[in-house]
């Protein structure tokens, strides 16, 4: 248990990334909070990471889904072959 709660800075960064996507477990979240409480570096990384997440959410960005992208690729390739 002790090993699970007291983590390295690198491990904390990994958990922090997972947390941005809601994929960190409860134990991982607790371990991250402990690390953030005393480690300046982890705290800075966590702050920057959270800021990035909220910025991206504010932008309400869109990108093509895999199926949409493949459809576009297929259409374009046909035309490209005619062109070349």
């Amino acid at each position: 248990m002790k090993k699970k709660l007291f983590i390295s800075h690198e491990h904390a960064k990994h958990i922090c990334d997972k947390r941005q996507y809601g994929e960190a477990t409860f134990t991982e979240s607790v371990a991250l909070s402990i690390r953030v409480a005393w480690c300046r570096l982890t705290r800075a990384y966590s702050k920057k990471n959270n800021k990035l997440t909220s910025t991206i959410q504010d932008a309400k960005m869109n990108c093509l889904k895999q199926t949409e992208r493949k459809k576009l690729e297929h259409q374009f390739e046909k035309e490209l072959n005619k062109h070349q």
Binding site: N62, C63, L64, R69, L72, L80
Partner: peptide, 13 residues
């Protein structure tokens, strides 16, 4: 044009 879809489709979309 061979790289247009990869490089620009998401940006343009």
């Amino acid at each position: 044009p061979n790289h247009w879809i990869t490089l620009y489709s998401d940006y343009l979309f």
